Simulated scan of single mutants.
Amino acid sequence: MVQITLFNELYFLVAGGTVWIDSDLSSSLPEDSDLPLHNSTCNSTVPLIGSSPPDFDDKENVGKFLYLEGVEYFMWCTYDVHFYASFALLDLFPKIELSIQRDFARAVLREDKTRVRFLADGTWGTRKVIGAVPHDLGAHDPWHELNAYNIHDTSRWKDLNPRFVLQVYRDFAATDDMSFGKDVWPAVCTAMEYIEQFDRDGDCMIENDGFPDQTYDAWTVLGVSAYCGCLWLAALQAAAAMARSLGHGDYADRCMVKFAKAKHVFEAKLWNGSYFNYDSGTSYSSRSIQADQLAGQWYTASSGLPPLFDEDRIKCTLQKIFDYNVMRVKGGRIGAVNGITQMGR
């Protein structure tokens, strides 16, 4: 079954479109000498936000790899869905997977001040903000002109940065590659620091801002959300584990203090006795059942980390998702729907 699943996940090798070139053919991005510096919460050995992105030594010379989400969705390495597909790459082509993660680690520390117009609301913004994980590695000029996606301002998305931290730690734990861990650690710290700005009330839990600020880009989310909040909890735990492995014990301790506070807020605001509410708002959809509400727990389990919640709550939530998101739609014959109300709509 595992082999069949992995094979099915490799559709992008033949259907999605791929580019695989020698590393020397992809020149590095231009240095930004006038980037602003901010105080970093990380160990003093970690570069500050705005410092020049590191040049990783690709000892294996596996080259540079790109793939499309689909031929009708022309953006290279869309990171929100790489979150799912990357398990196949890690298992079958781990060096390619690490190469992609290094590309995104570089991208976290880059800035592109080009102004772009976002289609959803017509506002203008910056193409790539320092500290924000990009949605993709570009389209017509990959690795150089990032974020071909322009429906929403993804620098305000709440899931990309935690997803980056979770993927990096999973790959680090699976490969035990200390060189990779040291290479990407500055980007991990920067990504974590960046996302903390969305903790609006200082309770250590991030909040969504009332627009589609995550990969479900037609769904409005307000306040604490099951999907993004769970990813954030998992990212705090993953960052702590990675910090300990790399000798940054103080940073790990700070992450776990935040984790304990954030977990309390998350459960207090969202747990309703049988699953976690979609968000902490008061809209019609706020008590909806989201299939992806335990995405952070999934990555935690996949990475060998302790569970985020009590086992009873995890099992109860999964049962609810199965009963509603799977079985209440055509008798479960088409798989899980992303979201459903308690009324089955």
Rank of each mutant, 00 (worst) to 15 (best):
G70D: 14
V71F: 09
E72D: 11
Y73K: 12
M75W: 12
M75A: 13
M75C: 10
M75D: 09
W76N: 05
W76A: 07
C77E: 08
T78F: 09
Y79S: 07
V81T: 14
V81F: 13
H82N: 13
F83K: 07
F83L: 13
A85V: 15
A88E: 02
L89V: 11
L92D: 14
F93C: 09
P94I: 06
I96K: 05
I96G: 01
E97N: 10
E97F: 06
L98G: 03
S99T: 04
S99R: 06
I100Q: 03
I100Y: 02
I100T: 04
I100P: 00
R102Y: 14
R102K: 15
R102D: 12
R102L: 15
R102G: 08
D103K: 03
D103P: 04
A107S: 11
A107K: 03
V108G: 00
V108C: 02
L109W: 04
L109H: 07
L109N: 03
D112N: 11
D112E: 09
D112W: 02
R115G: 02
R115K: 12
V116A: 01
V116M: 07
R117M: 08
R117S: 10
R117G: 04
L119H: 15
A120K: 05
A120C: 06
D121E: 14
D121Q: 08
G122Y: 03
G122E: 06
T123G: 09
T123A: 10
W124K: 13
G125H: 00
G125Y: 01
I130C: 11
G131D: 02
A132F: 02
V133E: 02
V133S: 01
P134W: 02
H135R: 06
H135A: 04
D136K: 06
G138Y: 00
A139K: 09
A139E: 08
D141C: 08
D141W: 09
H144Q: 08
E145T: 13
L146Q: 05
A148R: 00
Y149W: 07
Y149M: 01
Y149S: 07
N150Y: 11
H152A: 05
D153V: 04
D153M: 00
S155A: 10
R156D: 06
W157R: 02
K158V: 14
L160P: 06
L160F: 13
N161K: 05
N161S: 10
R163H: 15
R163Q: 15
V165K: 04
V165F: 07
L166E: 02
V168T: 10
Y169G: 03
F172M: 10
A173W: 04
A173Q: 07
T175H: 06
D176K: 12
D176H: 13
S179W: 15
G181R: 07
K182I: 14
V184E: 00
V184M: 08
V184S: 03
W185D: 03
W185L: 09
P186G: 11
V188A: 04
C189E: 01
M192N: 04
Y194K: 04
I195A: 03
I195G: 01
I195T: 06
E196W: 12
Q197P: 05
F198E: 09
F198P: 03
F198H: 08
R200C: 14
R200W: 14
R200G: 13
R200L: 14
G202A: 10
D203V: 04
D203Y: 03
E207L: 09
E207V: 10
E207C: 09
